[in-house]
Amino acid sequence: MINKTIRQSAWLFVVPVVLLVAFNALIPLMTVVNYAFQETFGDNVFFWEGLTWFEQVLNSDRFHDAFLRQIMFTSIILLIEVPLGIAIALSMPRKGPWVSVCLVLMALPLLIPWNVVGAMWNIFALPDIGLLGYSLNSMGIDYNFTQQPISAWATMILMDVWHWTSLVVLLAYAGLTAIPEAYYQAARIDGASKWAVFKWIQLPKMKRVLTIAILLRFMDSFMIYTELIVLTGGGPGNSTTLLSIDLVKLALGQFDLGPAAAMSLIYFFIVLLICWVFYTLMMKNEKQ
């Protein structure tokens, strides 16, 4: 239904948002674009560099490695968090007093500030005094996330799963509760197994919210910074240096503003591109 009203005054309500977005997104973005194509030595003096910085970044091993690590990290956490989130949502009660208890418990990790999450896990996992690190070591498992890349990765993934699975759970749960009771009754009458109910009723009905969950988790994991910088700082060595950490190192550690700006833009387009591909595929599937 096309619903055109003739009054134009509604536009006025949008003006504050437009201004806000202009100040906190468009203007900084333009600054980044400015840096990406020029060289500066301060004093607002700029020299045109064209695509030099882009070539430099795209050809550097350092970027390739960070990018690969990023892809690996995102894939692993998606593969864990989505199925785990669905499984938890399925096992949550659908009515009764326990519903709110479960929901509050689930929401807790989402409420903790990101730097606190990093700090918590850092202390929790310390091999000498942390509960996790100490227990693992006393069980005879050689674990030290400040020294071993494998331990660092495991800790990083565990932290992310702990922090963000709840989001998937809440979205999946919302999708589940929207399924009318009649569907379950019909399935019981049709003699469907639990697996069949999941495959033919729950999963199709959750598809929409799961798309959103995956998209959100994908974008967030691609931009993970705060928790990680507190937990590992990108180490040991460069083993947990994901794109965002690398970018900050480049921009603020080395003050290579030109390459950093170019990398930001590349980073931005990668996220945009993958999201778009994701979304189109999902929607196409939906239409069939």
Partner: peptide
Amino acid sequence: TIHRHIAQVFQFPVIY
């Protein structure tokens, strides 16, 4: 329910 061997049509169509 399942062992009563019944069939039911609901108010709103239930399809997969």
